[in-house]
Design a protein around this nucleic acid. Sequence first.
DNA 1: TTGTATGCGTTATCAG
DNA 2: CTGATAACGCATACAA
Lengths: 330, 330
Amino acid sequence: MPVTLKDVAQKAGVSRSTVSRALNNTGRMTEETRNHIKTIAAEMGYVPNFLAQSLHETRTRTIGVVITSISNPFISELVEGIEEVADNSGYTIILGASKFDPEKEIKTILKFYQRRVDGIIVQAAHLTNFDDRRLESIDIPIVLINDEINIGTYNNVSTDSRVEVKKAVNYLFSIGHRHIGYIGSSLRMHSNRNRRMGYEDAHEENGQPINESHIFSLPMMSDYETGRKILDRVLDTNVTAVFCYCDMIAIGLMNACRERGVSVPDNLSVVGFDNIDQASQFYPPLTTVHQPKFELGRRAMRLIQHYPSEVVNEMLDCQLIVRESTRPLT
Amino acid sequence: MPVTLKDVAQKAGVSRSTVSRALNNTGRMTEETRNHIKTIAAEMGYVPNFLAQSLHETRTRTIGVVITSISNPFISELVEGIEEVADNSGYTIILGASKFDPEKEIKTILKFYQRRVDGIIVQAAHLTNFDDRRLESIDIPIVLINDEINIGTYNNVSTDSRVEVKKAVNYLFSIGHRHIGYIGSSLRMHSNRNRRMGYEDAHEENGQPINESHIFSLPMMSDYETGRKILDRVLDTNVTAVFCYCDMIAIGLMNACRERGVSVPDNLSVVGFDNIDQASQFYPPLTTVHQPKFELGRRAMRLIQHYPSEVVNEMLDCQLIVRESTRPLT
DNA sequence: TTGTATGCGTTATCAG
DNA sequence: CTGATAACGCATACAA
């Protein structure tokens, strides 16, 4: 059993309140008593019970972070950003993985609420899928990251993926491609839809018709496998370039290309999304849309700390990073 | 302010204890009252305060996880394993990043202790670097992961990297290599030393002398950059194969090779350690030692739950995965 | 079957 | 300057 205030008080021959005041440098007392008490507390290895403090202060300096899976590199960078800001201001984060299960997501949020976290950050939210009454009673700060559906209902720190994808596809048009594929991830309903709309926007801007048969997706958990498995179908069409929902899909696809003897970028240009570390380490280095992952996490955490009275939607800019997986169509 | 037991009690016209019993299905009462109370509680959106419960039960169902950096893929898989087991048994994990700073590591452990976590899992521990008296008072379960120095003092779930590296280097000898380099990471003092000893063991087993000039390292944070930057020095020697401390170093090195026109594996065989996802997605697919990352995390968590009375050191087996970054020397 | 009292560990208020 | 007391929210032993 840990040493309590009471234990220290007994040993020091004073009351608990005096010990508390001595240790917190509050109240008035001779430096002598204060130091005496501090010494005894240190000797006994006293460490204040954070639970008791939290219960009293009705705040926990804890932030709940709901993610789909921590082993996704995009997400782990996000979490790193959150953790950094949290740690710098005396907060601690608790983690919960939803595994893409909306019900699990709600459960995790409720679990965090039960733990009386001071705020919740949710990545990949399905919050309004169910008009779930269970969430109504939750009156703590909630910030979503890269949410594409709950805008206006919840605070959101995000990138405008529709616009960013449009830019990326526009780039493909600008270097001469006319038949461009879209490879999505049917598991991420909302963000996938938005990115696809960006793909369509670009076609419209360029006066190009959309060919439904150039839009691909598989309901797979593994992004690498999604990219890898889809190549067959892509090659059945006349696309000369593809935009992929995320870098991992792009990488899976490019690996399948190598196995099939399809050269990237000579036979097929590939664009990803996210700019995970791996994108630049791969060969050919992947042309992709850089998402400021670290900064998304940091902003989300700051938003929790300075919680706005009105719902806000912070938009962060992305950057198209042109590397070697794309080339002009000659 | 969240609804409390008292609020529900008032509305239901009973005492707090009755509400508590009704909700916890303890005590004896008519199903009618019980349901009545449950209904009211639900209507009011009552969610028990976990802090108060924890304070009462003197346990928090919380596990502190100390890591160096969550964005390292090896570590994020570890955490995923921990989280899975934790979640399945009603535990929640809190995260703290040490950034390779031993002092920060200690601080994080103390922070977790202050939060009265039920256990602490530490990756990359420097626990006995300082004979730090601050840790003496901590009497909660601690399990280290892949610790190479505190064996016997703390519980440890690990792989035997010395033996595993020896096997990997033996493999290189077995396919004809005689001049084998070792590329380390001087920031990971203990594990680096152990892996290097495995490298030396293999030389001894094969009756080969150790050439100190074949042992390389840089004090860099980025593993990719370490691998990339070290190639020049490697090429100044006559090594035909290198073992790398981890996959990320191997990948950085192989990228530098491509830029220099050095073919892997034709001109240089490369072996990594960890078998992160990226190892199989890279080209050439990396020959590496598979560490059971997920399982390490799971075992660590289980060890916390069934805490042994005597210090234990659980060893998990690795597997050499031969892929295409190595080839026999002809 | 239900209510009262107590304790978990801390801090703040209020007397002394 | 310091000590007793209440309060944070809950669960349980005990009393009714």
